[in-house]
Design a protein around this nucleic acid. Structure first.
Lengths: 230, 230
DNA sequence: CCGTATTTGTCCGTATGTATG
DNA sequence: ACATACATACGGACAAATACG
């Protein structure tokens, strides 16, 4: 039990929970190939623990949708199909609208200031063409939005869906093109919320999510087109 | 857009999964008092198995929101507060609207016939004043609605929220009054879907969910009022 | 405040099932 | 098709923490 530097810090939680969180990071970072098998013994050795907590973590990850378990065969990183991604987007679109409406109705001046700052930050990175950083700030912006609703269940559901979409993007996506968001949309979202216009804010966020889905589809088509020509 | 049976989503037949499903039933049926502790050894003996699968089932139930685990203290049936129930309703309201819109857009004649039959069944039980049966049919009706969307993610999220609300109702609710739904609402929902009016169907279902929340609040108030006078 | 009993946390061994040559 | 190697499933034992008297 001496090999795990990142884990030892968060000692308040149980070992299976820590392992679950750590494995979630590994999956979302792509340390394990999508569809790949998670070997109990290897992971146990990697964390310097036994297989019991690993198995418990698998069960939690399965329930959260990142892992699929086959009886007597093991745990695999889930492959999320385009169809399933579409289904997730359907749900997320509806949640985004809810988020927009709630924020427009209840946001505080301090929260508005924070949002404004993040929008400007995104715009600055937008011109610098740093794609990965842009993507990160975009995720952060939306997580800030949902967290400002103060609704813990909404936050939890939204984050779970976002993780699955993140996993979907890991599945392929030669990146490069198409997935970049226009920062105009972010500012428009901010403006609608600041104006406390519930309908506009809801529509803006929903449309933003729908556009995100459309970008996803274009990226997938580009990818499959490239694959067939190669 | 085909109806998915509840079992189809849970396709694993491993022992921990079976235990998890069984324990979920026990919790939702109230076999274990809300807030009560789940004893690993007792449950293992009850199922005639060892503690390993029990612990894995706990993880799954924790992730699905029915159980809370404290380090070195054990697993407890979660107590859902009125505040949290409100948060869940917020999310469910948005999903209900989504369900209504999708159904109005895509429902098949066969599915419509099934819905009509269920509505009539509910109306018949409504006059018979059989409250528990009415409640059951009501749940079934809404589960049928969401399953007819064919969106597996939506189905999964919706069912999870419904289970948590079910758990909330177990918390107290001397039942008796207030929670009974007007069957007019169900017929109105059916009519809007049958008319393929997406806006109306979405609004109807959302409003139906909001009324359900209002009934919940009234029931809680009646309960606390009765508690203070007693 | 201390000692004991109970319960949880973790580890390991064995049986069973699966993939591979 | 068979035998071998390997991974998982489950049970059981021991250590650590908590609850109780």
């Amino acid at each position: 039990m001496e090999k795990l530097s990142p884990i030892q810090l968060l000692q308040s939680s149980s070992l299976p929970m820590l392992v679950q969180e750590e494995m979630e990071k590994m999956i979302l970072q792509g340390d394990i190939v999508v569809g790949g098998r998670l070997n109990e013994a290897d992971l146990a050795q990697h964390f310097g623990i036994s297989r019991g907590p690993i198995r418990e973590a698998f069960r939690g990850l399965e329930e959260s949708g990142l892992v699929r378990q086959e009886k007597n065969r093991g745990a695999f990183v889930r492959e999320i199909s385009v169809t399933e991604a579409d289904e997730i987007y359907d749900v997320r679109d509806a949640l985004e609208e809810l988020i927009g409406r709630k924020l427009a109705a209840n946001i505080t001046p301090a929260q508005l200031a924070e949002l404004q700052q993040q929008v400007e930050q995104i715009e600055q990175v937008g011109v610098s063409q740093d794609v990965t950083r842009y993507h990160l700030l975009n995720l952060q912006f939306h997580d800030t939005l949902v967290s400002f609703t103060g609704n813990r269940k909404l936050i939890a559901v939204y984050r779970k869906l976002t993780k699955e979409l993140l996993l979907f993007r890991r599945r392929g996506l030669a990146a490069g093109g198409g997935m970049l968001v226009s920062s105009d949309e972010h500012r428009a979202i901010y403006e609608a919320i600041a104006a406390r216009d519930t309908d506009a804010a809801g529509n803006m966020l929903r449309r933003h999510s729908e556009l995100s889905r459309a970008r996803m589809h274009r990226a997938v088509e580009n990818q499959t087109a490239a694959a067939t020509t190669a």
